[in-house]
């Protein structure tokens, strides 16, 4: 008998700013919508373990989608005429466009790296529509990543991105999962990783903006100790500036908790999901 993952993958047309974006997403489970955002230059495969975890999918409808230009989501028309640079406005708007088009009621947003950073923008702009946010490897400011070598004719963009990511994961994480994460990086489209890092390192700067977050949707920071781009100290300092936010440092894990060490990540994630569930029960 064939062994199948419980994940279902589909394409949806997400209207935004006059374009119908053909977006690939995967989902599993039922209950509270939990929308998972991938890291820069990668795609929704990073969340495959959580999509297959019945402890999560019992109470949450887990959805992970590929941003345009990533994974199976094709770029918009005329992409070949421009340099891709992801902006905070497009990214936050697009996440909400996805949620609204799929008619997700009060979803939880969980993003990693740039997906963690966008949680601050979402919390500031759309807290009324969200149940909670989980910023994995996110913080108020993460400079230094927007460099030309990620997209240079003399350098293999996929190889260099993958190799760089290998050692921002923890050495304790299973070797096969670390290299699987690298594989996703090796498959990114030309200029996409660099374009995403424009948001991550340039357009995202919340150092003077944390006060804009109302706290109506709780914000949980989960940060791996081997992530030198966003350290647990940075995340904790960010959380202290935000109402209704808390930070947890994760030992022996790096920049890609969900894909580099899903079993260890689960130990940190489940208490947060349980808090969100309890808050939902109390509100009814």
């Amino acid at each position: 008998m064939v062994r199948l993952d419980p994940i279902v993958g589909r394409f949806a047309y997400i209207p935004y700013a006059g374009t119908d974006y053909r977006v690939y997403f995967e989902e599993a489970g039922q209950g509270i919508p939990l929308v998972c955002l991938h890291t820069a230059g990668a795609d929704c495969r990073e969340w495959r373990h959580q999509l297959c975890d019945s402890d999560i999918t019992r109470d949450f409808r887990v959805l992970a989608f590929d941003l345009p230009r990533h994974g199976k989501s094709i770029p918009p028309d005329r992409w070949w005429k421009e340099e891709y640079r992801l902006t905070a406005k497009f990214y936050a708007d697009f996440v909400m466009a996805f949620c609204r088009t799929l008619e997700l009621q009060k979803p939880v947003i969980m993003g990693s790296s740039m997906g963690g950073n966008i949680c601050l923008h979402l919390a500031a702009r759309f807290a009324e529509e969200l149940r909670a946010l989980i910023a994995v490897e996110g913080c108020e400011y993460s400079p230094g990543g927007f460099i030309d070598w990620w997209w240079h004719p003399h350098v293999h963009g996929g190889e260099v991105a993958a190799a760089a990511m290998l050692d921002i994961m923890a050495p304790q994480s299973p070797e096969n999962y670390r290299w699987e994460t690298c594989w996703y990086y090796a498959q990114g489209g030309p200029g996409v990783f660099k374009g995403d890092l424009y948001f991550y390192s340039v357009d995202h700067d919340f150092r003077e903006r944390c006060g804009e977050i109302s706290g109506k949707a709780p914000l949980y920071f989960l940060t791996g100790e081997y992530d030198f781009a966003c350290t647990p100290e940075l995340a904790e300092a960010t959380a202290k500036k935000i109402k209704n936010a808390e930070a947890t440092a994760m030992r022996e894990i790096g920049h890609f908790p969900m894909s580099e060490n899903p079993a260890l990540f689960k130990r940190y994630l489940m208490p947060v999901l349980e808090k969100i569930l309890r808050a939902g029960s109390a509100a009814r």
């Binding site: 230094g144 190799a163 760089a164 290998l166 050692d167 050495p171 304790q172 081997y226 030198f228 350290t231």
Partner: peptide, 16 residues
Amino acid sequence: PMPPPRYNGIFPLVFG
């Protein structure tokens, strides 16, 4: 064998 955070690779050593 298990280097501490920030010391676990040539990339973090150079970048950091």
